[in-house]
């Protein structure tokens, strides 16, 4: 086989092998990443659903835990500056629905608290329990 043909075959093998290998490996790594993220989100969601499991709970209801500082209280509403609530909200100040009007009786503005939220999505999540941090 002449040298020019050897060089040509070598380069083609090299380029095609590199291209296919990279594309295959890259796609596979990307797909694995996506699968891993989805599985992790699913596990977290199931954990929240298990935590929210109680008699009379709605389908798909989850429970989240948060920590924050009370900024304002109303009979139906609690305004809390909170840390990130995993799977629900980033760190910010949010007004949450209070599941019971008695919740505000145990807390005052400025109190650092731990709180539990229940709901199916962020918009219908309500504070169901509060304790001092």
């Amino acid at each position: 086989m002449p040298v020019w043909q050897v060089a040509l075959v070598l380069n083609l093998t090299f380029a095609v092998g590199l291209g296919l290998g990279y594309a295959g490996w890259g796609r596979r790594a990307e797909a694995l990443d996506r699968e891993f993220d989805a599985a992790r989100a699913q596990v977290e969601r199931l954990e929240r659903e298990r935590a929210a499991c109680r008699p009379g709970a709605r389908a798909g209801e989850q429970q989240w835990e948060g920590r924050g500082v009370v900024r304002a209280t109303y009979p139906q509403l609690l305004v809390i500056t909170h840390e990130e609530i995993r799977g629900l909200l980033p760190a910010r100040t949010t007004s949450f629905r209070a599941a019971s009007p008695t919740l505000r009786e145990s807390i005052r503005i400025g109190d650092p608290i731990r709180f539990s939220l229940q709901g199916t999505v962020a918009d219908d999540a309500a504070v169901v329990a509060v304790e001092q941090w």
Partner: peptide
């Protein structure tokens, strides 16, 4: 590639060998 004993007397083979 360099260990390969090949005939590079022809111009295009010589260029291919050195270019590679």
């Amino acid at each position: 590639f360099l260990a390969m004993r090949a005939n590079v007397a022809e111009r295009r083979n010589w260029i291919a060998a050195r270019g590679e």
